[in-house]
Nucleic acid binder design. Structure first.
Lengths: 337, 337
DNA sequence: TTGTACGCGTTATCAA
DNA sequence: TTGATAACGCGTACAA
């Protein structure tokens, strides 16, 4: 049933090595031989075994995407499909396949370093920065194994991320342009890098307009609808309440909208609300939310490119960082006319 | 740098075959030998090459998930992460990895049948029924290659799906229980199996209550917010308007809610609205939507199990079908008190 | 219980 | 331009 390179060689009356060269389109094979052998391959319906090729070439033609399926990894969860699509679009055309692996390991022998790296199941790795810890990155560096992080990681790792600082500036500047002047910021934990980045952008935009970020306008916490609601309530019940809020997520913004509605505060007339992420709610709230869209497909594409660069470029390459620009989507929640 | 089975054998003063047997925990190796060899494997940081193992065993220990990244495959898109998690949870513990492959192929040689099946990159396939066409299924059957469809496909294919008919009954029966008596159905195309199933469930529930489904209560179309809005508007502007609507998707339901709001029709008092799917909007509409939740992780688990069953069970197995039960989530949009 | 020898399907290195 | 043969790393009869 299964036809191998030897069968083709026999049928074509040539040596295995000749068939192999035809497969790889070697320049040192005559035109006629190539055509004849290829013809026979069609006829016999031959496809080379990727496993045997991999063994001979010492490469799996496979790249791994690491995920932590245990903690509902909020970020990846939403954009998984797009990121995968992006990665696939670049590695696929280079004849690589994508293997998804869960980092949850029961026994130490099941650790992905063994399952994927040491066993040579993949030639390179892409992983979220929450998965790619500093210790792991160090180990991969030691092994000179190619990897790219999605999200910023410490040197000397290479990574791709969205420009969160720029995002913070964009949202805040937009609110200022719409004549909001007292802008609050809700959601996110102080010790998260992503909060720091976004907050810095927010503060920069304020400063550029001669304003300063005051700490009682900042409320940290889990960026879901409940905390968003509570945070907004706290801010809005203050007599000196803000006239705009930048929210870490669209869920937090949803909570803020609820709070405003309950307090009879009109959005956008009396209060502007802008959120960092677009999916999945921003289009569907009342009023619809002004938010920042991120091109997650492109995130996949970029990480794929960077990884392939490292795989083919050897281990001497300097580390690289890529910041992708978010896009501002204007909607009713900040449209004052 | 790389340590092979021969290195271990040399270091342990045994034959390669002995090391191999230790690796596979063969019962015909003495306790002491095993311990000693294993000790050395630890010390030398040895992990067997999955490629070499695969070649020797004629199996890749890899299963493929096929997706069509081109058309934003509405269904998979949303639940990709959960489905993958489900599949991974069952195949991962069996030492299999998951390869994601895009069925979009530029050249015929890039067709996944070559890239994955003929080249033996994967030992089995899971795919959405929109990808796994009848022709493809027939070809896989001919090759005796194990596969499972997510979503119903014609015999003799094996598949896993949600019980859409049951879902239609559940939503409709619930509405009847809430004393709604004139129930409409919007969204979905006549020629889609999924519409037929759901509609049949709806019609069955009506019949069981002595009612009949009348065709002017059914509006077909794309199940997004625009069509949902238009359909609801049409229904609700009729003097003989329905007092409840079953919607094919939460997006269509979102549109229906909009229409009701514009017409000043109170939901749930004057109009009950229930939707088939829970994510991502149903929790966040005003009022929140009663909807059907589907356990997509379980969908992944089931398809994984069925596939492994076929892989290990040989090719003589009869085809199997699995229907998963949806879960009714009660919310304000149908709560009449 | 352990070891020898060969096979798995391909690539790579030389000769011819 | 083509061919013989040795890797690649592991599994497995079969023999010892």
């Amino acid at each position: 049933m299964k036809v191998t390179i030897s069968d083709i060689a026999k049928a074509a009356n040539v040596a295995k090595s000749t068939v192999s060269k035809v497969l790889n389109d070697s320049p040192k094979i005559s035109r006629e031989t190539k055509l004849r052998v290829r013809q026979i391959m069609k006829e016999m319906n031959y496809t080379p075994s990727s496993i045997a090729t991999g063994l001979a070439r010492q490469s799996s033609y496979n790249i791994g995407l690491l995920v932590d399926m245990s903690k509902g990894s909020e970020f990846l969860n939403q954009f998984f499909y797009n990121i995968i699509g992006g990665i696939e679009s670049v590695i696929g055309s280079l004849k690589y396949e994508l293997t998804i692996a869960n980092v949850q390991h029961s026994s130490p022998e099941d650790h992905f370093l063994n399952r994927l790296v040491h066993s040579k199941r993949v030639d390179g790795i892409i992983a979220n920065n929450s998965v790619l810890t500093e210790a792991l990155a160090a180990e991969l560096d030691r092994l000179q194994f190619p990897y790219i992080a999605i999200g910023e990681i410490p040197a000397p790792g290479s990574w791709v991320d969205f420009d969160n600082e720029l995002g913070g500036r964009m949202l805040t500047q937009h609110l200022l342009t719409q004549r909001y002047s007292s802008i609050a910021f809700i959601g996110g934990q102080r010790d998260e890098k992503i909060f720091t980045r976004r907050y810095n952008g927010y503060a920069q935009a304020l400063e550029q307009s001669g304003l300063t970020a005051s700490q009682d306008r900042i409320i940290n916490g889990k960026a879901d609808e409940h905390e968003g609601y509570r945070a907004a309530l706290t801010l809005l019940q203050n007599p000196d309440r803000p006239d705009a809020i930048v929210c870490m997520t669209n869920y937090a913004a949803f909570g803020a909208l609820q709070a405003a509605r309950e307090l009879g505060i009109n959005v956008p007339a009396e209060l502007g609300i802008a959120a960092f992420d677009e999916y999945p709610l921003s289009r569907y709230t009342t009023p619809p939310l002004t938010s920042l869209n991120i091109d997650t497909f492109k995130l996949g594409v970029s990480s794929g490119h960077l990884l392939m660069e490292r795989i083919s470029g050897g281990s001497g390459l300097p580390s690289r960082h890529l910041l992708l620009e978010p896009e501002l989507i204007l909607r009713e929640s900040t449209t004052r006319n």
